[in-house]
Computed example of a mutant assay.
Amino acid sequence: MTSATFRIGGDLEVRRLGLGAMHLATEPSDAREASLALARRAVELGVTLIDTAHMYGGGANEELLAEALHPYPKDLLVATKVGVSRSPSGEWGLDGRPDVLRAQVDEALRRLRVDRVELLQLHRIDPETPLADQLGTLRELRTEGKVGRIGLSEVTVAELDRAREIVDIASVQNRYNLLDREHDAVLEACTAADIAFLPWRPVAHGSSGTRAEVAAVAAELGVTATQVALAWLLDRSPVVLPIPSTTRADHLEENLAAAAVHLTPAQRARLDGLTHEDA
């Protein structure tokens, strides 16, 4: 039986199906009110992992989650990311300079209304800044008590190995789904080391339902193609923590219901055989 929970960093237990907050509207409007309601509904439905980032609205997404959920339930983890900044011209770019990372962490603490970010992820490795400086800064912030655990995003196996020589890595967030398995090797490395693997874009933008094999398995189980894709991820490795993003309550409920979908070995084998090109 697939476990419903995972301990990030060996001690921080979350339910494996979380919520990606990236698409939640933050500008004052009916859409913002809907975003607040959706975040609250996610927690009501048992979500204990919500993923956000400084880049999502320049911190506005963090503020939205705090408005919706603070004071947070004791079992809720709001993970955020730093290391991307906006230039004076408004363009976003990688920025892992120590002073930038420190400033973004301080801003996250203020916006999220917390004393410590329990899981802080480096949004991307900045090739213009030595990795030891980037991760060394996050390690210092952990020592200072501002950060609980450190994660990475969009890394290779070699980058993960180098990072682990500098600091303990609790999570990796790479793009990964049933039809996009470019980072299979990274997932295998995370599985071997018991590092949480948070696949972003865990469903291939709705295209899963156009694949005959996925549609067939969904029909056999009486569920949706999206639920099949999420169930496959949960079955792929015990360290996988999908964080599907949505703005609709019905889609949220559909996503979370995937935790109860159980693939047979034969169905799993058929899905394992899919590639980008399969129809």
Rank of each mutant, 00 (worst) to 15 (best):
L160D: 09
R162W: 04
R162N: 03
R162K: 13
E165I: 04
E165G: 12
E165V: 02
V167R: 06
V172Y: 01
Q173W: 03
N174G: 06
R175L: 10
R175Q: 14
R175M: 10
L179G: 03
E182N: 11
H183D: 15
V186R: 01
L187F: 08
T191Q: 13
A196Q: 01
L198F: 05
P199G: 10
P202H: 05
H205N: 13
H205A: 14
G206L: 10
S207H: 10
R211N: 13
A212N: 08
A212I: 11
E213L: 13
A215Q: 05
A216V: 01
V217A: 08
V217E: 11
A218W: 00
A218H: 02
E220I: 01
E220W: 10
L221P: 04
L221D: 07
G222R: 11
G222K: 11
V223R: 12
V228N: 01
L230W: 05
L230S: 01
L230G: 00
A231L: 14
W232L: 01
L234T: 08
R236T: 02
R236V: 04
R236Q: 07
V239M: 10
V239P: 02
L241N: 03
P244M: 07
T247G: 02
H251L: 12
E253L: 08
N255D: 15
A257F: 08
A259N: 03
A259Y: 01
A260C: 01
H262S: 12
L263T: 01
T264S: 15
P265R: 02
A266S: 13
A266L: 10
A266G: 02
R270T: 07
R270K: 10
